[in-house]
């Protein structure tokens, strides 16, 4: 599997660390309540199909990358820097 880091280009999957769904970007307000926090941290759409998840270019530039990917075919559809996605209010 190869992932295109927006800064470094196409790299082997070995250079990246995976952490989970890109909902991680949407940290709730501290006072949002137990349900919201439970949902944020634990519950997942977990689609069999296209998903967005978080990859860290650990053996590269240190960027967190949002990867749009298909969980069934493993096709990588697109990548973007997490900080840009965050800026877009993703």
């Amino acid at each position: 599997m190869r992932i295109t880091c927006p800064l470094c280009g196409a790299r082997d999957r070995r250079e990246f660390y995976y952490s989970g769904a890109a909902v991680a970007l949407d940290r709730p307000a501290p006072e949002a309540g137990a349900e919201v926090w439970d949902d944020y941290l634990h519950n997942r759409d977990n689609p069999a199909g296209v998903t967005r998840d978080m990859w860290y270019h650990e053996l590269g530039c240190g960027s967190w990358v949002v990867v749009t990917r298909n969980t069934v075919s493993h096709e990588v559809i697109g990548t973007a820097l997490a900080r840009d996605e965050k800026g877009r209010g993703a």
Binding site: A24, R27, M54, Y56, E58, G62, R83, K86
Partner: peptide, 17 residues
């Protein structure tokens, strides 16, 4: 050490860019 570095990058880039 590695986990913390990754975490700091996450907090900065993903939570408070």
């Amino acid at each position: 050490a590695g986990q913390v570095m990754r975490h700091l990058d996450f907090v900065h880039q993903c939570l408070c860019p």
